[in-house]
Amino acid sequence: MIYLRLFFEFFKAGLFAVGGGLATLPFLNDIADRTGWFTRAQLADMLAVSESTPGPIGVNMATYVGFTTASVPGAIIATLGLVTPSVIIILIVAAFLRAFRDNKYVNSAFYGLRPASTAMVAAAGIGVMELTLVHAGEAFGLSFFNWPALALAAVVLVLTRWVGPTKKLHPIVFILASAVVGVILKF
């Protein structure tokens, strides 16, 4: 039963994704690989839409993936699956607030979790780069690289990191500009 599986998959993502924002991305990659409900390329598109619309990225991604998999009921069920573990855990933690914050085992567990979470997001990023910046089917050489895409990536990187007036701009600006470049240069 697709609805039950959707709920369960997103419940797992909500339970194990630590650190917010893109932390759910590795779990969604994992769901894509195991279920075939959507592809990693679709996931990259969903990420762009989720970053460009209001609401927390994780929630937007769950709604989008749920909708792609099983329409409107799917969107609702995936989102509820994602937030259910949070709600349960926070309701429990709220009862022991101070003890939880000062617990040395909790703190040391998170000392290990944060680098792991960062690494999983990095791996997801490398996955998107493989899809986008290189022609994975080609032998290594000049034609292995997708040069127009690399050039666009370099420009966006410079504008988001080093150019004072543009690096504070909202990501939606870069997403829309990249869409326009993609249409004009027929990416």
Binding site: D45, T132, L133, A149, L157, F174, S178
Partner: peptide, 13 residues
């Protein structure tokens, strides 16, 4: 458009 957007997503990640 989405092919262009994906390039941008790489940099954002």
């Amino acid at each position: 458009a989405f092919a262009g957007i994906r390039v941008c997503v790489c940099v954002l990640i």
